[in-house]
Amino acid sequence: MVETYTQDSDVGPTRKYYRLTERGTGELTQFRSQWAAFSATVDDLIGREPR
């Protein structure tokens, strides 16, 4: 779900970067949609105002 790549740097060592794959982006989208409902439920349970 995550891939890495390296890129030369003008200063210092070669840099390593990370990015989501297409599958990772899909998983993140699904997680975000589930998180809203989960978070609202927890807020109700602990008595905080929903955001």
Rank of each mutant, 00 (worst) to 15 (best):
M1W: 07
V2M: 11
V2Q: 09
T4D: 02
T4W: 03
T4S: 03
Y5M: 10
T6W: 08
T6D: 04
T6G: 04
Q7Y: 11
Q7A: 12
Q7I: 07
D8G: 14
D8P: 12
D8N: 15
D8T: 13
T14E: 15
K16W: 09
K16E: 13
Y17Q: 12
Y18F: 15
L20G: 04
T21E: 10
G24M: 00
T25R: 12
G26R: 09
E27M: 03
E27H: 01
E27T: 00
L28Y: 01
L28I: 00
L28G: 00
T29S: 03
Q30F: 00
F31S: 05
F31Y: 08
F31K: 04
R32S: 01
R32W: 00
S33Q: 06
S33C: 00
W35P: 02
A36N: 04
A37E: 12
A37L: 08
F38D: 08
F38Y: 07
S39L: 05
S39P: 00
S39V: 05
A40S: 12
A40V: 05
T41R: 07
D43M: 03
D43V: 01
L45M: 11
I46S: 04
I46D: 08
G47Q: 05
E49A: 03
P50Q: 06
P50Y: 00
R51N: 07
R51G: 08
